[in-house]
Write a protein that binds this DNA or RNA. Structure first.
Lengths: 207, 207
DNA sequence: GTCATAACGGGACTCCAGTTTCATTTGCGC
DNA sequence: GCGCAAATGAAACTGGAGTCCCGTTATGAC
């Protein structure tokens, strides 16, 4: 092992390095929104970020890795959760937020690009999974509260319910291409609430 | 309209053209499975198909268009549907089939590649949507039969139920990265059945 | 069988994404 | 503020994906 005191090989994440990172991530986000994932060109991103292209290639190597880094950044920004006081209301609020995000001109394209990147690279996929794990954890409490209020059976797996709300929306977004709108959001939330009340999401260990 | 008898400009889809198409589609399928979508190289596919690369570039132009053509081909191959005699059983059979497909070494990679291609190209996306519309239509009858047996309420939207079974599975496959196995399949089918019985998928026009 | 031409194929060519080189700047420990 | 190495940047370089040209094959109408 090369274990020296004031060793070479130590990182130096101070001022400039951090500035370059944020500049490149911003440029990458813009580029993804404008061109989609396959339109991304690291040299072009370097130009936009006003950074040498060598730097971008050296630090991130591939578009996938850059997207993975962007996802780490995105996961840190939290979206406030609305509380309506009922399971149906909370799930509906969540479903509508998802639909608004996916149908938003900029965000929808960005999410498609990010998901496309994740299908072709394991590390990007892991970053994506962590991103959604974060989002799901943020919304789970509304199901736990419903359990406390007696709206849902004891032992209900909160994150499973939250996933059930999003799943049909992402299925339409990525796979079937069926329309996404507020009605669909409400129906998805309602179906999840029905299944929850029927005990479909009670953890097996608690049955 | 250019309606001539023995006109120039007419297609000639006979023997050789068709042979080249199937050879290239087979090679494309293999390449997608081995390298994923971003690893696809039209020249490489031409080599495998023992076809001039000029031909591949001329007829399909981009990997996305080639994948779209492959999807048209895949949509034509029908998968037999199992009938168990109960809504829960039929939906479970469907869910298990989907999980088996997505977790299969070859098919799973192929589906990821195809979905990735669809996120970056409109025409590929349309081919993908048609592919799933076909699959969903094939499974819808089992829900209609359940309605006839009185297991599900009158006016239930069969294709909506079938989508509801697949959605959580594809969500895990593409977005959250949570595990896919037979237990998950059964739970997804059960949740869809619960929501169906609760009337969550009754068409609005029929309520 | 004959002919016109759609479709294919080999190979040279182009162009640019990605790499390498090396000089310059800047963070950071003292 | 001094010095060293981490980090960046400009420019030259390279390899291969995609295009072009033009001769060859073989389909389908007669």
């Amino acid at each position: 092992m090369t274990d020296e005191g004031a060793a070479p090989g130590m990182l130096r994440p101070g001022g400039r390095t951090a500035r370059v990172r944020t500049a490149v991530l911003r440029a990458a986000e813009d580029a993804l929104i404008e061109c989609g994932f396959d339109g991304v060109d690291l040299a072009e991103i370097a130009r936009r970020a006003e950074v040498g292209k060598t730097t971008v290639y050296r630090r991130w190597r591939t578009p996938q890795v850059l997207v993975a880094d962007l996802l780490v950044d995105m996961a840190e920004q939290s979206v406030p959760r609305t509380e309506t006081g009922s399971l149906d209301g909370d799930l509906r609020a969540n479903a509508r937020l998802v639909v608004r995000t996916l149908t938003d001109e900029r965000q929808g394209v960005l999410f498609k690009a990010v998901i496309a990147a994740a299908t072709t690279d394991q590390r990007t996929a892991e970053a994506l999974h962590r991103f959604y794990a974060t989002r799901i954890d943020e919304w789970s409490p509304c199901v736990d509260q419903a359990v406390e209020r007696g709206e849902a059976p004891e032992g209900t797996d909160a994150s499973e319910v939250v996933r059930a709300v999003s799943a049909p929306l992402y299925y339409r977004f990525l796979v079937s291409g069926d329309p996404l709108n507020e009605t669909v959001a409400d129906e998805s939330a309602h179906a999840a609430a029905c299944a929850t009340r029927a005990g479909a999401y009670v953890r097996r260990s608690a049955r």
